[in-house]
Amino acid sequence: MKPQHATSAVASAVSVRSLRKEFRTKQKLPGLGAAFRSLVHPSIRTITAVDGVSFEVERGEILAFIGPNGAGKSTTIKLLTGILYPDSGEVRVLGLDPHRERRALAYRIGTVFGQKSQLWFHLPPSDSFSLLAGIYDIDRERAKRRIEFLTEVFGIGDLLTTPVRKLSLGQRIRCEIAASLLHEPEILFLDEPTIGLDVVVKERIRDLIRTVNREDGVTVFLTSHDAGDIEKICRRVMVVNHGRIVWNGSVNEMKYTLLNRRIVSLKLEAPLVFSMEGVEIVKSKGYAAKLEVDLTRVTIESVVSTLLRENKIVDISIAAPPLEEIIASIYGRTEAPVDGEQTTDGDE
């Protein structure tokens, strides 16, 4: 695992030390008999959702927090936003303890949970904005100016008077993000903001997140399963699996150093003639070819010079493997037995 970023807690937007959260869940085997047996003698399983994680997020940073389903992403966000109480460890968000100073923190953070809407389904977004302004104690004049500003930036002028139930998913997410920014938060927590959106809308949402970060200096803490979100928005990525951070570094670092492989794509004047230790020809058809280079066995320089010497090359590109593959590889490397999980018998 890569060493954690060393940043002072004062300058940090988020500072987490040895954070831990466990859930106890009742296990039930299938069938009616098992249901009756579990009434008398329940089997309780302790699941360690967050297992002693420590990290920092700097102010103004856009951080991707990724991991497979059940890795502990959502639990971590809920601990950072004061929804859940930690079992142990220390959390500071903008210098505040989220569960002890929940209300004070709520004024300073914005959240968009793709699965939970803060807009009323039967009413137009303008009504929800007005109610949220009241909840966040924003005075009428300031709320009006802020709504006008967000309407312009997010291009939602036409949507403000349409009931939320009649908006498309992309339109609704734009309104959700605008609603979360109404009180000018310093940190925006986004949980799967682009889930279920088409590529055009995804790109628009990404643009908006970048704009909010660049122009208002809002720190963005993003979870996503979409490699495009991570690649196009974030500078740093943290990968969490089984409640532990298994990677913490820049997106570029992750792409170029984590997997010692490069993909070389070629267009040639004649069919490829090439053989080299540490290089696999993935595809060779007509005048095009794709090679996979293992950098632990051969340098990219020697591969390219040999290719140029032995072939007439029209075009060449060298790329890191797609981010999805890298992420899948990290997940795969950490699919070890879960030592934080245990099953006990006892009363709930």
Binding site: R103, Y107, R108, W120, H122, L123, D127, S130, L131, G134, I135, Y136, D137, I138, D139, R142, H183, E184, E186
Partner: peptide
Amino acid sequence: MRTVGRRRAFPVSLIGRYLRFNLAAA
């Protein structure tokens, strides 16, 4: 701190807002 307005744990005026809001939805 960027949010303005007096911060209250739960102002009575919010009850009125909720009532108007819910009535509008109904």
